[in-house]
Amino acid sequence: MTDMAIGGMRGGGMLRRAASGGVLPILTVLLVIVMVWYVAAVGMNAQWVRDQAARSGAVLETGEFVRQTLTLDRPVLPAPHQVAAGLWDGIAGQKITSKRSLVWHGWVTLSATLAGFGIGTLAGILLAVGIVHNRAMDQSLMPWAVASQTVPILAIAPMVIVVFASAGITGLLPKAIIAAWLSFFPVLVGMVKGLRTPEAMQMDLMRSWSASPAQRFWRLRLPSSMPYLFASLKVAIAAALVGTIVGELPAGASSGLGARLLSGSYYGQTVQIWSALFTAAALAGGLVLLIGLLERLTLRRMGLAR
């Protein structure tokens, strides 16, 4: 129970809190982070600039020194404005079809994520319905489903890609399978919990009206599982995105945000890594917010949310 509740809190409610007067503290903390980042950028890039200066025999004034640390081509830590410039260049500066466009790479990742998320969610819900109605399925599957959450499945994602590639399957499908696999378990576990929430009293009431199993399902179990479903959907979509990105890591993948990360790390293009990272972060935030929006709309229509 606590697992899900806290999982649901995560990422949700953010807009609401921001709107209810939390903007100033958030902005303050963000400002502090940016400042710390600048200081760190100067500090971490200092060695390189100093070496360069020593090599050319130049003596740098403090102002010039700081300017150089923040404008390096391949900095150890790029300054925020360099990342922002990299992001802008990747998003707006390229044709969308270009291999250097972050929109294109983002779309490659997003499409695999959404495909996998859809498959995984559907499978999770269907299996949860089966588990709730069939005791043998429940006892056979649930222990493994719960235990599987403690296993670092994500870590083997690249291997799955390679195996599929050796069988001649490449592109969107293998990544979607990983994403589906990762989103499947949270949805399954959350949905089973949700379908079981109706209290004994409510179930007895249904029985006293001699409601059919289908009626019990559609009118009691399914509606009361909705809060749980959305809580696990948020976890699932974040997991699906991470799965897709990690699935793009194996050498050979040339498209997607994961591939950008990898090629950036091969060639020391730190700005490229950070830009890809921020694009991924924006995608994740956007997806979770989207689910949160859907959740609020659905729950409000059901009269469960204020």
């Binding site: 939390g22 963000l30 994500l154 990105i245 890594i273 990272l277 972060a281």
Partner: peptide, 24 residues
């Protein structure tokens, strides 16, 4: 004040694909 500022950011970051910082 710090909590109100850090908590939403922490919530947000917790949902991000942080493994991505591995190469860095």
């Amino acid at each position: 004040f710090l909590q109100r500022g850090l908590l939403p950011i922490g919530n947000f970051v917790a949902a991000l694909p942080i493994v991505g910082i591995a190469p860095i």
